[in-house]
């Protein structure tokens, strides 16, 4: 099973994303800030990261920079934000995100993204 890490400080958002991803058969883990996410990722890299921007201690940008800095196999990362702001989107790409979605992410949209980023053939 493909493992996905949800990094978000909002428990409600984590629960929402987890629900969608688990129903599609993915193995989901959660981290509530960048530091915790890094610890988990360094322990065993995930196949995909879904990352919030604004978090305590280490925000999403910081987490992605650190993740990309670590010269391990590089898995795709999606940044989710509450703002459809161009500045935030550029910053996300600079930091190492591979895509940028605006919350709330609709179920079908999230699953399409995840499937494609994981290279899964479509049924």
């Amino acid at each position: 099973m493909r493992r996905i890490l949800i990094v978000d400080d909002a428990a409600t958002v984590r629960m929402y994303h987890r629900g969608i991803l688990e129903s599609a058969g993915y193995l989901v883990e959660e981290a509530w800030n960048g530091i915790e996410a890094l610890e988990k990722a360094l322990e065993a890299p995930f196949d995909l990261y879904i990352v919030d921007i604004n978090m305590p201690k280490l925000d999403g940008y910081g987490f992605l920079r650190e993740l990309r800095q670590q010269q391990i196999a590089q898995q795709p990362a999606v940044m989710v934000s509450t703002e459809a702001a161009a500045g935030d989107e550029r910053m996300a790409y600079q930091s190492g995100a591979n895509s940028y979605l605006v919350k709330p992410v609709v179920q079908s949209q999230l699953l399409s993204h995840v499937r494609l980023l994981l290279g899964e053939a479509n049924q």
Binding site: L64, R65, E66, L67, R68, Q69, Q70, Q71, A73, Q74, Q75, P76, A77, R90, Y93, Q94, S95, G96, N98, R115, L116, L117, L118, G119, E120, A121, N122
Partner: peptide, 30 residues
């Protein structure tokens, strides 16, 4: 494409490139 066009070269540049390559490979696989 937008990421590839960025001309900054941060310390995590290599990782960022690898991630893009991974994504592109996955996309074509998909």
């Amino acid at each position: 494409r937008q990421i590839l066009l960025l001309d900054d070269r941060p310390a995590w540049h290599a990782g960022r490139l690898k991630a893009i390559a991974e994504v592109l490979a996955n996309l074509s696989q998909a």
